[in-house]
Design a protein around this nucleic acid. Structure first.
Lengths: 199, 199
DNA sequence: CATACGTGTGAACATGTGTACACTTTAGCC
DNA sequence: GGCTAAAGTGTACACATGTTCACACGTATG
């Protein structure tokens, strides 16, 4: 798995690297590959699962409900940015395969992200500031937040490691999140539903 | 180019299809490929350029400044969704290659999107509602808007063509954009800069 | 000690790949 | 009608790929 990650970081993406190259990178003969995975797709799926198991642990560990919304955005951005840099190769793999991987891999990634959105929306429901907002609208807001964080990850992975530009990217993301929360503070679920029905 | 698009829609991504398969799909012998492109990368870059030339035309043609912000979001979402569906294969290619393509292709796409963000921020500056906001903050907001639209495109391309789910996706994106604009309406550039300096 | 199992090996195969080269065909223009 | 340039063809080569099969080594457990 480590060998595959290294190759993906170097090459364009996962489908561009061959079973034989993974084996070579791992210092092993091609046929030995089959002792561990049925095929390349199985390897890719294992990488996806690993990434999200760890990410889920991170999100569970960060008890955001303890903080006020103000400090929350900065803390969340820093936590996430640190983790992405720490697991650079894993997230590089994820970002590349999210849309260009094989169908099973794409679906696995999409499913996990959807799950994160749902859980984030559930967390939002505990904040007094959002008590007015309907559940479906909370999910829409959560999706916006997740999109923003994902976009930050993509940008961080684009620049070289330990680049000074990282700080600017994080500030951007932080502002975007603050703006989203300002919008959410004024959001009226009933008004928006009415507008939607009026079509 | 059409042959390549068809194959990319069917396969995982661009780097997974070979020069020989493109030629076969085009009903032509492999060596004939070289009469049109130096290599596969050149083909990919041509596809990127084509997509953005057309997209730029669409954005230029849509004179958004004529509308009030309220109707603007719905109109923009519908216009964009229609165009993405209309050029499905091109945008499928774009979404897949944005992060997983070869370096030149990735950079070309990224450059074009950055350009669109800059121009959108410039358009924002003409609205009275945003006159308070600094230019750098306008770009951050424009980026948020573009991210949301890109995300909508990705979702539309994920579901089958002419799927009823499209309408729900568009409504989501419309709400997200309205929320962003509500946040922007309360945005205070000086306050945010001060907070940033305070660190 | 033996035996079962996880892991790694080497040779072999049919098939796909990018590209070079010399050639033929096609289409447009004076 | 003949010339030119663009587009397409066929052959050839050296190489990479996924997968198969029978075999070898290590270790831990009965």
């Amino acid at each position: 798995m480590q060998a595959a990650l290294e190759l993906v970081a170097y090459e364009a993406n996962f489908s561009a690297i061959s079973l034989r190259r993974v084996a070579r990178q791992a210092g092993v003969v091609p046929t030995a590959f089959y002792r561990h995975f049925e095929d390349m797709d199985a390897l890719g799926l294992s990488l996806v699962e690993d990434t999200f198991i760890e990410l889920r642990g991170l999100l569970r560990g960060a008890d955001l409900s303890a903080l006020p919304i103000k400090g929350l955005t900065r803390y969340a951005v820093e936590l996430f940015a640190y983790h992405v840099r720490d697991r650079r190769l894993l997230f590089q793999f994820l970002v590349k395969e999210r849309f260009s991987g094989s169908r099973p891999i794409r679906e696995a990634i999409h499913g996990h992200i959807t799950q994160i959105v749902i859980e984030l929306a559930r967390d939002f429901a505990h904040f007094d500031e959002f008590s007015r907002i309907e559940e479906t609208d909370l999910q829409i807001i959560a999706e916006l937040v997740v999109n923003t964080i994902v976009s930050l990850s993509e940008r961080i992975l684009d620049v070289a490691p330990d680049n000074a530009e990282d700080a600017a990217l994080m500030l951007r993301a932080e502002k975007q999140l603050r703006l989203i929360f300002m919008g959410a503070g004024r959001w009226e679920s009933r008004a928006s539903s009415r507008a939607a029905r009026a079509g």
